[in-house]
Design a protein around this nucleic acid. Structure first.
Lengths: 132, 132
DNA sequence: CTAAATGATACCATGCTAGTATCATTTTGT
DNA sequence: ACAAAATGATACTAGCATGGTATCATTTAG
């Protein structure tokens, strides 16, 4: 029962590091040194973040990545959505009634409500709010 | 991001059916007819529930299964624990600090809190409470 | 023009989910 | 006694997701 996967995790760490640097671009190499995350994996993650518009990228010598917006405008839910798909606990189960003779599945409703709560709590967590 | 897996799902449905029957044993065959769950899979699930003490089993012709305790004493979290392991959202991630230079990972704490909430909400849901 | 960086993409190992398949054992009914 | 009907135990399997690796192409600073 995993709320965040490893790529989301690494993305959070990398973004925190980048946010702390305040300005200038940060290369994958620098991040690898600080975070001890496997380099090719981190590269892939940053490329994904780039495509998603979370970071801007700069090619060429001296290039790297930079947050595309303020750290407190980047929510954990944004990252979960990018790496794990839509934030919801339900995920296709319980689409039919629990027993065929029951019109609406009560369990689904209750799990949905719990999921809504989780989602709203998570969306309050931003990279900025993790920087202490 | 799946809160319940298919075996937990099926277990819930089967237990609901059994609870509705009120008394007497129910065989896998009967459950399969009502629930349209693949027979061998449902058998395995019920055997697991038997080992876990959720249902009692009766072998031989005319045998089957019966709830081992009242329906409202069977919580969803019991079933999740049986089929999916410990109920927690955190699952080994974020065990170290996000960045090595940060003593305690703030994200872990916040996710833990959300997890606690989910857990306590889930434990309020019982088979009995799903029977309308 | 070369070194240092990212872009795009294809590949791979492992583990988990969602089952299937079989044989052994127990119990009821005749 | 014996057959039928049920569960017990257990081994196996296909497909998919996770957590990566590996390569080659492209861009840019100096």
């Amino acid at each position: 029962m995993k709320l965040v996967t490893r790529d989301t995790d690494y993305a959070v760490r990398a973004l925190c590091c980048m946010a702390e640097k305040k300005e200038g671009v940060v290369s994958v190499g620098e991040l690898v040194k600080e975070l001890k995350i496997p380099r090719p994996f981190l590269r892939k993650i940053l490329q994904t973040l780039g495509r998603a518009g979370i970071v801007n990228s700069y090619k060429g010598s001296g290039g790297g990545f930079k947050l595309a917006r303020p750290a407190d405008k980047i929510r954990i839910t944004d990252l979960i959505t990018i790496f794990q798909g839509r934030v919801e606990l339900n995920d296709c189960l319980f689409k039919k009634a629990i027993c065929p003779n029951r019109a609406v599945c009560p369990l689904k409703k209750r799990i949905d409500n719990i999921g809504k709560h989780v989602e709203s709590e998570l969306s309050l967590i931003t990279i900025g709010s993790l920087l202490k």
